[in-house]
């Protein structure tokens, strides 16, 4: 456990020192969402109708932006070899790195999203649900993303490959995330969608560290 926190602490400090990554993700998120009112026109009803979908799609793309770097830097400078050889299961290392990644990208997205929801005229009932779905959804995105990031290690143009690999896998999270918000705004029950998001998160938490660790071992052979 102390070693788990040790790695989280290191990755957080690295992210803070190099600063730009987190900021870039948030700026991309804001810009992508702001483009929509400009593109589809300022009609309040239309924006309210598409708000949940736009915010979720933008969050999904923003989360992916930084995933390529999750293991790449450590791979390039030899740290990854030493992390694999550390006296901790590699799955724990992966989980620690994913945790740090979520704290530096998923969490800022979650904080920014309600502000953007105001901009898009999202119904008042949707705000809390928006934050709740992002709280359950963004860790899932980071976990699934870790598998992709580990698989494309060492390949050129890994970023594009990563998008092609991950976007299809992100569809369930997107569908149920947006579904829950739409249901809440429309006054319907949204318990089922939230539960499914929770299940997706738990499933990813249980499976993804193992898959990513196996991919990392493969990358180092």
């Amino acid at each position: 456990m102390s070693r788990f926190l040790h790695i989280v602490h290191r990755d957080l400090r690295l992210a803070l020192r190099q600063g730009m990554d987190s900021l870039m993700v948030v700026f991309f998120f804001v810009l992508a969402v702001v483009l929509f009112p400009l593109g589809v026109g300022p009609e309040a009803n239309l924006l309210a109708r598409i708000a949940a979908g736009v915010i979720w799609v933008a969050a999904l793309l923003a989360a992916m932006l930084s995933l390529e770097r999750l293991f790449q830097n450590d791979f390039d400078d030899g740290s990854l070899e030493l992390l694999v050889l550390a006296p901790v299961p590699l799955e724990v290392v992966v989980l620690a790195k994913v945790g740090a990644h979520w704290l530096t990208t998923g969490l800022p997205l979650m904080v920014t999203a309600p502000l953007l929801a105001v901009l898009l005229n999202l119904g008042a009932d949707g705000f809390l649900v928006l934050v709740a779905t992002l709280a359950l959804g963004t860790p899932t995105l980071s976990l699934i993303g870790a598998v992709g990031a580990a698989l494309v290690l060492g390949s050129r143009r890994g970023g594009v490959l990563l998008s092609l690999l991950l976007l299809p896998l992100y569809i369930p999270v997107l569908v149920f995330g947006v579904g829950a918000i739409d249901a809440a705004v429309g006054g319907f029950a949204m318990r089922a969608q939230i539960l499914i998001l929770g299940a997706l998160f738990l499933g990813a938490l249980a499976l993804c560290p193992w898959a990513a660790a196996a991919a990392l071992r493969q990358a180092l052979e």
Binding site: S2, R13, D77, G78, S79, E81, L82, P87
Partner: peptide
């Protein structure tokens, strides 16, 4: 190995302290 696993953003002491903590657990 061939690569030295030195993080450019960390000082020399921080680099070493991280690997020490990971190996020795403190």
């Amino acid at each position: 190995g061939h690569l030295d696993a030195v993080k450019p953003a960390f000082t020399v002491a921080e680099n070493l302290a991280f690997w020490f903590g990971l190996q020795a657990g403190g």
